[in-house]
Simulated assay, not measured.
Amino acid sequence: MLASSSSSPALATSPQDSALATRREVSVPVYEGSSLTTEFPQLVHLNVGGRKLMTTLATLQMDSDSMLGLMFSGKLPVLRDADGCFFIDRDGRQFHHILNYLRDGTLPIGLSRVDRLELLREADFYGLKALYSFIGGPTVQAAMMTGGGTGLWLRGLCHDLAKAEAADFSVNSRSHRVYARLRYGQEYSGDWIVSSPRNLPHVQYELYDACLARDPITALNKMGAAGFRPCVEPPTVPASTSCQNDDWEIMLYKDVWQ
């Protein structure tokens, strides 16, 4: 049995609250066995999409203008599940990053592209603008300067990425391996250049940026950023005192799916 209770701008008691309520109408589903409450203990047990966590009320109220700040200050209704935990109907996989940020400003590291997109979605929902801007990086920051960067823009980005992945998916998909060679040479203004083959897929003219590398480490880093891995890992790299000779070469590869 499911009912719905929605907040309205009338719940906001400050200009910031009013702006948040105007930007997003919060629909709180009321499930059988749960109840709405505006009373909170100092130690809060949470159920976020089925994941159980515990934190303090002060942490949840740290950003008073955020969704969590409004929910746990009594300005927006909050659900309790059958076990007495405060329930939030969101994906809980990234919620520990939200809590760590509220606790002491800790910013997440080591995020995969998928994790970053998921955390962006959650930070947007909870209205944590500073965290959202940081994890979104220059792409989001540039979009925000032109009126995008959140909400529909983020959903559109995720939709486009999912659509591109779906287009690449096929039961007949297969991969082939493309090889490239890093070697010392003087064809370009750099010393370490990329050759064999001449036209690498999805890469600007033989990784021209790598062709400007003055040393093998820089060239390897640039090739790695383009998705190429050394055939022998870790690669054998010449000493800095002997890297400028024709005896050294480093073979790399990249698996390309078709």
Rank of each mutant, 00 (worst) to 15 (best):
L79A: 12
V78K: 00
L79E: 12
L111Q: 03
H97L: 03
P230Q: 07
H96I: 12
L207S: 15
R174T: 13
S34V: 01
E32T: 10
A167C: 06
P138H: 07
D115I: 02
G137A: 07
A123K: 04
P15K: 01
P234V: 09
F86R: 01
R155V: 11
I250A: 08
L252R: 01
E118Y: 05
P77G: 07
P138S: 12
T37P: 05
S189R: 14
S18H: 14
D63N: 11
A19L: 15
T139L: 14
F87I: 00
A226G: 05
A167K: 13
P235M: 06
Q16L: 13
T56D: 07
S35Q: 09
L220I: 14
N172C: 05
G50N: 03
S133K: 08
D83A: 15
C243R: 14
D104C: 10
Q258H: 12
N100R: 11
P108C: 04
V26Q: 10
S6K: 10
G147E: 06
I109G: 05
L220W: 05
V140R: 08
M71T: 11
D81C: 02
C158W: 01
D81T: 04
L200F: 03
P77D: 11
I98F: 01
E122C: 08
G69T: 07
L79M: 13
A226I: 06
A166Y: 07
V114T: 11
S189W: 07
I109L: 09
Y184N: 09
L79Q: 15
M54S: 13
A166F: 08
L131I: 06
A213D: 02
A226S: 12
L182D: 05
G92W: 03
W248C: 03
